[in-house]
Amino acid sequence: MAQPVKPAPEETSALSDKQPWPLWEVFVRSSRGLSHVHAGSLHAPDAEMAVRNARDLYTRRNEGVSLWVVPASAIVASDPDAKGEFFESPKGKDYRHATYYTKSEGVKHL
């Protein structure tokens, strides 16, 4: 997924309408009953145009029944530098998974 890209300093001082259109992340629900899944990104001047551009760009082949567009700058990601540490806790806790319980294997409807 695209990370938010900060405008370079010289651009922030320029007139707002000379700035490039902001970046939006696009999520597509491919059919009812499924989640919206990240499809890619695009540029658009505002939310209304973003959702229309997303329709034209990411659902040309019947790929979706619903769309989300989110300003890329609004996405908060987990700290990329933490990596292992952040996701360490669930490791070693196999008892959260059904496969941990081997003795009951073969018992019907369990």
Binding site: M1, A2, Q3, V5, P7, P20, L23, G40, S41, L42, H43, L57, R60
Partner: peptide, 23 residues
């Protein structure tokens, strides 16, 4: 030809994740 514009866009957005904006 329209697909090609789309493909350009997919690739630009992938490239942008490396830190260089499309413009």
């Amino acid at each position: 030809v329209q697909d090609e514009a789309g493909h350009g866009l997919y690739l630009y957005s992938a490239t942008e994740t490396l830190g260089t904006p499309r413009h």
